[in-house]
Nucleic acid binder design. Structure first.
Lengths: 167, 167
DNA sequence: CCCGTTATGTTATATAGTAACCATATGAGG
DNA sequence: CCTCATATGGTTACTATATAACATAACGGG
């Protein structure tokens, strides 16, 4: 469930479910979820936040898989291509998709304090963006929508420190 | 103003007007539009598309201004800080603001064929994004909204080559 | 089993951004 | 005018992110 990334949940279950979904997807499309690709997805699912490509690379390298940049970028290209990983442009980082439905184009909420990343359900504001583009004669192929701010926990912690902030 | 970047317009005029606005803004806020800063803004206004930091740097370097990376990043930090330049996260590049009103947070339309970048008027979809964030308890501080696709001209050119594309 | 395709391994390099330090210029106050 | 505090610019060195190009290995259909 995309909007629950900020809330507690059964983590090992959400990893297993998504890996299973990726297996199914690859089988159905004659694609190969190779060891490197699978492990990268597992690592991102386990982290449950955005990770830099080189952070992931260091981890798979320490496990005996490839340790050179092209290895991780190829795996990330594959996983983003099938929609199980998203790139966060604002962070030059990557995050596992929490709701891998075909063709969805979510918006992201990025906590600047704890680096948690949550997807919004649906594609909020996409209608208004499409309308603005149509007005300009622009044909949208992809949209990047990333909100940076404070997640519920970090927002509460900030307020506890400085209780006179605006709402 | 902002939504006309894809349309023909008096270019030298829009450069002069924006430079003048920057002068006024800096005078009013006791900031200094130094030669480097001014020239960077002029270059971006003249290009009328997103440019990489190092592209701008090469140009100012060839004109006798600084030629090392910190020079350009400092100028870009200043100009983005006062809102006359925007960073395009998707491209790791920078573009002059075409409608420098205080505090505006526009969306961008990026042509993947010709690299033109236009701002949308207002902040389309911001309401829906705010609503989704509120639902999740997330406090938005900044939002990145960038649409990639084809500008009117390039879209028309593509269609001329392959007239059976979907609308 | 062979062969074409796909994936991985490896080297080298391109591109983007920052830290740290010193020099210079500017403007406020004496 | 002088001097001091601060803002800005110059320079070196470095970190972080990403890709090009080419060789090797694995898979999967004939």
């Amino acid at each position: 469930m995309s909007h629950t990334a900020f809330a507690p949940h059964d983590h090992s279950r959400c990893i297993a479910d998504t890996i299973a979904a990726a297996e199914t997807h690859c089988a159905a499309h004659k694609l190969r979820l190779t060891p490197v690709r699978r492990r990268v997805l597992e690592i991102l699912l386990g982290a449950h936040r955005a990770m830099g490509a080189y952070d992931i690379l260091a981890q798979i390298g320490s496990e005996g898989l490839g340790s050179q940049p092209p290895v991780i970028y190829r795996a990330l290209d594959f996983l983003t291509g099938i929609g199980f990983v998203h790139r966060i442009e604002k962070l030059n980082a990557y995050v596992a998709c929490t709701d891998p439905r075909p063709g969805h184009a979510p918006a992201f909420m990025i906590c600047r304090a704890c680096d948690a990343v949550a997807e919004t359900p649906g594609a909020p504001g996409r209608g208004a963006l499409d309308a603005a583009a149509a007005q300009a004669g622009f044909r949208i192929e992809r949209a990047v929508i990333e909100a940076e701010g404070l997640c519920p926990d970090c927002d509460a912690a900030t307020r506890a420190d400085a209780p006179d902030l605006p709402m």
